[in-house]
Computed example of a mutant assay.
Amino acid sequence: MTKLMRMTTVPVSLQSLIRGQMRYMKLQGFTVWMSSADGTMLRELEQQEGCPHYIVPMTRKLTPLQDLKALWVAYRLLRRLRPDIIHTHTPKAGLIGMLAGWLAGIPIRLHTVAGLPLMEREGVLKQVLIRIEQLTYACSTGIYPNSIALRNYVEKVLYANPQKLKVIGHGSSNGIDSRHFHRTVEMSVQGQTVRNQWNIQLKTFVWIYIGRIVRQKGVDELIQAYVRLANTCPDIRLVLVGPFESDLDPISPDSEQLLKNRGDIIITGFQADVRPYLAMADALVFPSYREGFPNVPMQAACMELPMIVTDINGCNEIVTREVNGLIVPPKDEESLYLAMKRLYEDTDLRQKFSRKSRELMVERFDQQWIWQQWLIEYKRLMVEKRLI
């Protein structure tokens, strides 16, 4: 029986980034374990996936002493459990997991690259992050960027061994559960309930953003573009669904002040189920500076929302320009404003994008198909290593 360890830095990534994969592999006959830092809802996570979870005390920041402790804990855990495969996600888990896996002699060491913080760093810090990423790749036996564009970046900028690089399917870490994200009658009713909760009228046009409320997600540009549009179009609202991370990547003081003072910008905080919020919205705007292969635009597309995204990794592989959405340059408030204005004013364009969005997602990124591709890949690697 193949033994598999899945590791992320924090437990929420296991819960959301690769939700369902561990249970799926268990049903295929694998022994599966999960690992991450401590956090809330670990019992719920174990029940969700049907697999035990082990704590490795990782942090999302550069903390050398804590990282050494985490490496030692991970090494001892892997020596005890002896998985055939360790598969990591997120930068810190990649470093700790790949290095510990190499030290412990784990034969198959896989790391999924899903967005790189170093892309938005400068100077000495960027060079440090590059070296850390290169060490992660050196200790791995396989590197899996979750988009074609990200694969090219990892090879050309980070000088990863091209023989180690592979994109599964058309990209994405986990695909999309198109049966779960579906604009049913029931979901439309829940969307109307959310509108009522926030006192949003039926004819009011709702822009929705889902994600962390941080600078690198383009929230500053989004707020400024929205305010410009609202000055001439008062029948609109902006709904921000997600948590603040003021300690890691805060938005600007000007944006914070606008959020405090404007009643037409609604902040819901983190929502475990975003479907009712997608159902209540008229369009998604996702102006991120960097991504691997983001889940939010796929979820919105399956819910038949027209979209505006930035021309970055993943986003420009989910959205086909002028087919199911608009694509704008990152960090460009003017382009974002003009795209929002155009989409708001053009009902026919919104309807065209809506009709095409779900069709493209189901065709290219169905979750069950992505999971099957990972199963095939695991079995192929096991045969190569003569472990089965």
Rank of each mutant, 00 (worst) to 15 (best):
I370E: 01
D235I: 09
D366P: 01
A283V: 11
D332C: 12
E291R: 05
S13M: 14
E221S: 04
L387P: 05
W369T: 14
T268Y: 07
L360N: 08
K164P: 04
V113I: 12
L118M: 14
E186W: 04
I200S: 09
P287F: 00
G191A: 05
L343W: 03
Q163F: 11
V189R: 03
V274T: 12
L278V: 12
E120N: 15
G97D: 04
S13Q: 10
P276A: 14
P250E: 05
K126L: 10
V113P: 01
P64D: 09
R109L: 09
T204Y: 02
I18L: 14
S357C: 06
V124Q: 03
Q299Y: 05
P145I: 11
T59P: 01
G171L: 09
K26T: 14
R179F: 06
K92H: 01
V56E: 02
M280R: 08
R151Q: 12
L202Y: 12
N146I: 15
V194M: 13
Q127D: 08
T59M: 05
V10R: 03
P145A: 12
N174A: 08
I213R: 00
S255Q: 05
I388N: 10
E322K: 00
F205N: 07
T232D: 10
T9D: 04
L338Y: 09
R275K: 13
E322I: 04
E384G: 11
Q197V: 05
N231K: 09
I132V: 15
M1N: 07
G101Q: 01
D311G: 10
V214T: 15
T320H: 08
G50S: 02
D311R: 13
Q216K: 15
R109Q: 08
I308L: 00
W72V: 15
L129G: 08
V274K: 02
L202G: 14
M22Y: 08
G269T: 01
K3M: 11
G263Y: 00
L45S: 02
V383H: 03
V113N: 02
L343R: 05
E334L: 09
E363K: 15
I210M: 00
E384S: 13
S140I: 02
A149G: 07
R212Y: 07
R80H: 12
R321K: 14
L387Y: 07
R342E: 15
P162A: 09
V157A: 13
R151D: 02
L284G: 01
N295W: 01
Q21T: 10
K217R: 10
Y289W: 14
W102Q: 08
R275P: 04
G94D: 07
E384W: 04
R80K: 14
D264Y: 07
Q351C: 02
G175I: 02
D249A: 11
L305N: 04
I210D: 00
Q216P: 04
H111L: 06
F270Y: 13
N199L: 08
T193P: 06
V219P: 01
N316W: 00
W198S: 12
V12S: 15
D254R: 03
N199S: 14
L110G: 06
R195L: 01
N295E: 02
Q66H: 12
R342P: 11
L202K: 15
T9H: 00
T320C: 13
